[in-house]
Design a protein around this nucleic acid. Structure first.
Lengths: 206, 206
DNA sequence: GTCTATAATCGGATAGAC
DNA sequence: GTCTATCCGATTATAGAC
């Protein structure tokens, strides 16, 4: 009987180390600013080994972006936690806040990719994201029609949620500076999360 | 009698052209991804001329960042447009939205600099921005004490405003994709601005 | 002040021994 | 599968003629 992942192969271990190192370096320096030498060093191996597992820097970046994209989709699914407007929006905002907290590097890479004009994930924007938005726009419009939410263009609401939650990852350094030089601790972050939920819901709930 | 700027000197004209070209290229490709050759070409001059006016790429970047910083401070001043909570916040949000619309390149450079950990503008965060925040935090707390606003940590409110307004510059490409491939026209942008103001004020006004 | 040519360096990618 | 040495294109910056 073949066991499933009893012990990772050398290939699996090295690819994992490279992907995690790449996430750190791409998040810190951007695609152009990241060097394969820095990524390899971060993963604890010589530069040539990186190219053995990932032929090109762009290929490695694509692999990192795929991981990031899965995290985004996973958080997005919490929008459908409930048919109740406030519950669904709360769950979604909390999930996005938690994602920014748990995976700040992924959040930054995502934002940087969007800011660059999404050269790698354009097809995702055109397909999966467009469909996701279309479906949830319909839900928001139903809630508005049912008198649960104030009239608002759903996309304006989505953009506000995306921007505000990602801010806690993207601007973590600025936030830390304004927090006396220390990153937000768990208590401060939970307070911020509650206040973000309360403010957005307070702004849109009818 | 010496006239004041009747005709810009060659130096002034070329520096201006370079700064504007640099803003475009840095906004598009980030600091590391921007090449001095591309900036010079964009400004319509050979690469060597760029280095005649700005010795190093980083020096040119610093000069660009200073322009961006002035734009930020200018928009920030509209927070003090009124002693009334809702008027002040409305004016500030509108000014930030207009800034994102009028100067998307500057907004993107600013966000990218923050995301990188503010290597160039750290001293601005420590001094001017910290003071700006401290003073306006006090104003928000007074409004809360006076019953004009719901209780909220002022920084949570500022982060929401900063993130949401900058989203319209930073994610312009994503927004265009979700708008059928076309950037928001003026009417759509004005609607978004009104809704952002209404939602945030609805969320915090007592 | 302008511009061509070039120096000097960096970084992605590969060759080839182990 | 690993790693040293190296190639080579790209990029910052400068030299020096005009």
């Amino acid at each position: 009987m073949l066991e499933r992942k009893p012990r990772p192969t050398i290939r699996e271990e090295n690819e994992k180390a490279l992907l995690e190192a790449a996430e750190r370096v791409f998040a810190k320096h951007g695609f152009a600013g990241a060097t394969t030498a820095a990524i390899a060093r971060n993963a604890g191996m010589p530069k040539a080994n990186l190219h053995y597992y990932f032929a090109t820097k762009e290929g490695l970046y694509r692999a990192v972006i795929e991981r990031v994209l899965n995290a985004w989709l996973n958080a997005a699914s919490s929008f459908d936690a409930s048919e109740d407007a406030c519950e669904a929006l709360s769950a979604y905002i909390c999930a996005k806040m938690d994602l920014a907290r748990a995976m700040p590097l992924a959040s930054r890479i995502w934002s940087a990719e969007i800011m660059r004009g999404a050269p790698i994930i354009q097809d995702f924007l055109d397909t999966t994201l467009s469909q996701w938005v279309a479906k949830r726009e319909a839900a928001v419009r139903r809630w508005i029609a049912a008198g649960k939410l104030k009239p608002i263009e759903p996309k304006v609401l989505f953009y506000m949620i995306w921007a505000t939650t990602q801010q806690y990852a993207n601007a973590a350094h600025e936030i830390a500076t304004l927090n006396g030089g220390e990153p937000l601790d768990d208590a401060a972050f939970e307070r911020a999360k509650r206040q973000v939920v309360a403010t957005i819901l307070g702004g849109v709930a009818a």
